[in-house]
């Protein structure tokens, strides 16, 4: 059986908010190391890979591998009944028809219990190769969200270029063009504001802004975001969570001229 208790329901609420635009139905794969999820969007352009390590829960128990096939819209309806600060416990049997969710407020004078029906989801699992990315950029997630939003007003796609000068986000549309350059920046007192650029070779790739805008829905999960790029491979956008848990998005580049 599965029993996983989260100190704050906010984490699961934010995870579902972050991925439900991309993916409507997916398996939550539970095993003794935690709860993972991998799913592509309908057009197979983007992929989300999330893992909540067992250490992110207290306690965490999962005796056997269990796949919880969940409609995220339905899960969100149930999660709306949880306050952000509620303690959230997920429970399921070994071959479950439902997942049980319990929300307790901090003073333990309210306990809400819901059963969410599960579904059989036949999902393809993709192997994500370990990649030594040519460029890695860490920046405030709010900054990335702003850049994505501002450029979306001008164009459908953005070219992310990383070279010795730093990193630039450039786009061109019917009304004109835009270009945002970021340089390395270190704030010892506020590390969340840091911009770090590590590059082993210059990279320039073009991506659809629509998907980047979807990824940015995860901004509330982490103050910093990491962009990893290599020429001719998908972009990885990572929001690191506590306890080495993470939510990562992959986006196939636009190809050709």
């Amino acid at each position: 059986m599965l029993e996983a208790r989260l100190e704050q329901a906010a984490l699961l609420k934010k995870v579902v908010d972050a991925i439900k635009e991309l993916v409507q139905e997916c398996n939550f794969d539970c095993n003794d190391s935690g709860i993972g999820l991998q799913a592509m969007d309908n057009s197979h352009v983007a992929l989300v890979s999330m893992f909540l390590k067992s250490e992110s829960f207290s306690p965490f128990r999962c005796d056997r591998n269990i796949a919880l096939g969940i409609n995220l819209n339905a899960l969100q309806k149930v999660l709306r009944a949880a306050q952000n600060e509620d303690i959230l416990t997920l429970k399921a049997e070994d071959a479950p028809d439902v997942v049980n969710l319990v929300f307790e407020n901090a003073t333990a004078d309210r306990i809400s219990e819901y059963d969410l029906k599960l579904m059989d989801i036949d999902q393809e699992h993709l192997g994500i190769p370990d990649t030594d990315y040519a460029a890695q950029i860490s920046m405030p997630s709010s900054e990335f969200q702003r850049i994505t939003r501002d450029l979306s007003a001008i164009s459908e796609s953005v070219t992310i270029e990383c070279n010795k000068e730093g990193v630039s986000f450039a786009c061109e549309g019917d009304i004109g063009k835009g270009n945002i350059k970021l340089r390395q920046y270190t704030n010892v007192d506020k590390p969340a504001e840091n911009v770090e650029v590590n590059m082993t070779e210059p990279v320039a790739l073009t991506f659809a802004l629509k998907y980047l805008g979807n990824f940015c829905k995860a901004s509330g999960l982490s103050e910093q975001v990491r962009l990893c790029l290599s020429n001719e491979v998908p972009l990885m956008v990572e929001y690191a969570l506590a306890n080495n848990s993470y939510i990562r998005f992959y986006l196939a580049p636009k190809i050709g001229d």
């Binding site: 592509m40 352009v45 993709l126 192997g127 190769p129 491979v233 998908p234 992959y250 196939a252």
Partner: peptide, 14 residues
């Protein structure tokens, strides 16, 4: 005009 790549052409089915 640039086309959109597909994620399955980079990551293979397991």
């Amino acid at each position: 005009k640039a086309g959109q790549g597909n994620i399955t052409s980079f990551f293979k089915k397991q």
